[in-house]
């Protein structure tokens, strides 16, 4: 297996590592750097649980290789809340509205919604729901997530 040296930042922290070419970004974040908040649930790009932000874009970390992230700035779910522990407004909305149960899909959901709002702070309910359609949640029936989206859009939850 060919190995490559990469440099990247994760949640503002600089990391250097040597990775096998075939290692996915998700696997590298989890196993190599210990950001275990990123969850691998289908490893074929459908469920969205592994979504992380790469240079401002929401990406499925199971479909991206670690070597492709060389030089990139990455945000994982661990990097959403403020250092003082204040939750990101997406996290707070999910909490306020019972938007999670087992919590396995939640990191990807949170990153996607945070990215939509980053791009457009006044994103509408339907824009956020459309982004959410790329995520699978087996527990909640999406009710709490839908209410969280309404809260984020400034509508009654």
């Amino acid at each position: 297996m060919s190995e490559h040296k990469i440099d990247l930042t994760v949640n503002g922290h600089r990391h250097s590592a040597t990775v096998e070419a075939r290692t996915s970004l998700g696997e590298f974040l989890r196993e190599g750097l210990g950001y275990t908040g990123t969850h691998l649930a289908c490893e074929h790009g459908v469920c969205g649980a592994c979504t992380v932000r790469v240079d401002g874009v929401a990406m499925r970390s199971c479909l991206m290789l670690a070597v492709q992230a060389n030089g990139c700035a990455i945000t994982t779910v661990e990097g959403l809340a403020k250092p003082d522990g204040t939750l990101h407004r997406v996290q707070q909305a999910l909490k306020d509205n019972f938007g999670l149960q087992c919590g396995f899909c939640t990191p990807g959901v949170a990153i996607t919604l945070a990215t939509v709002l980053e791009d457009n702070p006044s994103a509408t309910t339907s824009e956020m729901e459309e982004a959410m359609s790329g995520h699978i949640c087996r527990c909640t029936g999406y009710q709490g997530i839908r209410r969280a989206i309404r809260q984020l859009a400034g509508e009654p939850a």
Binding site: Y35, E78, L94, F98, G103, P107
Partner: peptide
């Protein structure tokens, strides 16, 4: 929920 604090911030402990 008490569970949400860790699960929302990526600090749960799943088997993997």
């Amino acid at each position: 929920r008490k569970e949400d604090g860790r699960l929302l911030t990526g600090r749960g402990q799943f088997t993997d």
